[in-house]
Computed example of a mutant assay.
Amino acid sequence: MKKLMVMLVLVLGVAFAGKAQKVPTAEELAKKNIEELDKRLKLSPTQRSVVYNYAYELAKEQLALYKKQQAGTYKDEDETKFYKVQNELNKNIKAVLKPEQLTEYNLIVEERLSGIDPNAKKKKKKKGEEEDKVVGIEGLKSGSNNP
């Protein structure tokens, strides 16, 4: 009976671990990417279709690289190849966009490279308002980096 219980717990543990580690498909990655681009760039239906195809190709390359890393067959040349494909697809996407969309697209790419989350809320200061500074021992306790 103990062996049966241990075996059941083991099987359930593996099943839950497998669900927690679900890797998105290329379609899911491309869809998420195109939704953000469409929201920010206001793509036409034609642009959306073309850019989706490029995003899908990039997602396939990204997943292939991830699978190689997981399998332990990853080489530096694989990463170089991925970056070449990424740069080529970025050029192709830029060719499809209008000049006003291109400016916003460059900003999106810059945000992604720097790791900035576009959905993060930014606290705006009103004109003439200074940042609250905590001084003395309270400033040290709070871990604030304010000068």
Rank of each mutant, 00 (worst) to 15 (best):
K133I: 15
G72Q: 11
K121A: 02
N106H: 09
Y66R: 15
P45R: 13
G136M: 00
A64I: 08
V11T: 12
K94A: 15
L107K: 13
L12Y: 04
E79D: 10
A64F: 06
E57C: 00
R112K: 14
L8N: 06
I34A: 04
K60D: 07
L29P: 01
K123N: 11
V23C: 00
F16L: 13
V9R: 10
G139R: 06
L89E: 08
L29T: 04
E88T: 09
V50L: 10
K42R: 15
L4H: 10
K91D: 08
L65A: 08
Q47T: 04
V9P: 02
K122R: 09
T103N: 04
E77W: 01
I93Q: 01
A95K: 10
K81S: 11
L4I: 10
K42M: 11
L58K: 09
G143C: 10
Y52Q: 14
K94R: 13
M5P: 01
A71N: 12
E111F: 02
K123I: 09
S44W: 06
Y74H: 14
K123C: 02
K60I: 14
K125Y: 09
V11L: 11
K127N: 11
M7K: 14
K124P: 02
A71I: 09
V50K: 12
K141E: 09
A30F: 01
V135R: 11
K121N: 01
P147H: 14
V109D: 05
Y56R: 15
S144K: 13
N106S: 06
Q69W: 07
K60A: 02
A20Q: 09
V85N: 06
L41N: 07
S142W: 08
A95T: 02
K67E: 15
D76N: 10
E57S: 03
E77M: 08
S144M: 07
K32V: 01
N90E: 15
I108S: 02
E35N: 03
I93F: 06
Y105E: 02
N119Q: 13
I137M: 08
D117F: 06
D38Q: 01
V134T: 12
Q21T: 07
N119F: 08
L41D: 01
L10Q: 12
P24E: 03
V50A: 07
A30C: 05
R40L: 09
K68P: 03
M5N: 11
K84R: 14
G13V: 09
E77D: 13
S49C: 00
E111P: 02
N106I: 05
V134M: 13
N87K: 10
R112W: 06
S144R: 09
F82C: 04
V134Y: 05
V23Q: 05
I137W: 07
A15Y: 07
A71M: 14
